[in-house]
Design a protein around this nucleic acid. Structure first.
Lengths: 179, 179
DNA sequence: GGCGCATAGGCAACTAGTTGCATAGCAACG
DNA sequence: CGTTGCTATGCAACTAGTTGCCTATGCGCC
């Protein structure tokens, strides 16, 4: 499982409560690794027994108490070890691709309507990423070391959305329904 | 779950035994939906009780008997229904992206070596897809209706590998280790 | 004759992840 | 004063998928 390691990366960047992590997994990190808050709390518990992270309770004004987690030395060792491991090629699973493969067994118009919806979603996400890139990394040539990771995955997001957009355009072109 | 639907698409194209399906999920379909043979046999059993598929035993010479599955009318109805449903945006999960985000917490050289390995894998897969495309679809303009699905996902494969390749190149360029 | 390999089908145990729900404090709205 | 909504944490039950193992036929190789 890599959720542990995604959490380690996130906690290495900045300490956080389970709730904070859940929000990070809804936003920045969530663009390349999704996790529900239930899953996060469960895994945090296991990681704490493994001594990869430790927590302390923080009382807050006007809000419930929270448990702030931070990465331990052991956690950093594990992260370092994992980063040097060869990454297995991930099994990509695309329900959308399954549909495209089977398009001739369904209602072509309905499927193409879905393609249009996806195309719009890719375009919107691409615009969001590009605005982000322009705002936070106006000068990629002079990036600091601690910004490189976030920059690289933002670039991956941009490339991925362009890829998604291109494929949608090809599909629509093949069926001659560009509009 | 979409494995059922991936199997329905595959059986709608051509009847198959569980073993045949497992091989298809290792090859063509496997490029966008992975499944182990254990998972396939399990799901086929459920699909048969749901009347989406039916099987009959076929005795073979010099080989064990096999159970050949074919899609039923109900299965075709279900496939048709599913194809018209809006496709949820899939949660992409990239362990590799998690590593890139966390690269500063590990051994940079070791991680970049992994990037080189992945780059080579993408290049090889791209060459494989392109050879396939040249062989099977030399003239994309005159595709028959029953070839469109397979052609479109092959194009998706090509675009995806180019995307993977581009990202690896960007990473290596940022770290100035193109070699 | 033993070994590896391809074909063919499966079970059992486990892990990862999802869905649904529960609890609780406090703020803002009407 | 009740409802909605955000913060904050978590359990229970379930589903999907993985890992490891097993059976069996028959071929070719050494």
């Amino acid at each position: 499982m890599a959720l542990e390691h995604a959490i380690l990366v996130s906690l290495a960047e900045k300490t956080a409560s389970g709730y904070d992590l859940a929000r990070r997994f809804d936003a920045s990190i969530g663009h390349f690794w999704k996790a529900s808050h239930q899953q996060i709390y469960k895994v945090l518990g296991r990681m704490e027994s493994d001594k990869w992270v430790e927590s302390h309770l923080v009382a807050q004004d006007n809000r419930p108490d929270k448990k702030v987690y931070s990465i331990t030395g052991e956690g950093r060792d594990e992260l370092h070890r994992w980063l040097s491991l060869p990454t297995p090629i991930e099994a990509l699973r695309s329900e959308f691709a399954v549909k495209m493969r089977g398009i001739r067994f369904g209602d072509q118009e309905a499927v193409l309507a879905d393609v249009h919806v996806r195309r719009a979603a890719h375009a919107a996400q691409l615009a969001f990423y590009e605005a982000n890139a322009a705002k936070h990394y106006p000068d990629p040539a002079s990036l600091k070391n601690d910004e490189l990771g976030a920059y690289l995955v933002l670039r991956a997001g941009i490339l991925a959305e362009q890829h998604g957009l291109n494929w949608c355009d090809e599909i629509l072109q093949v069926f001659g329904s560009e509009r």
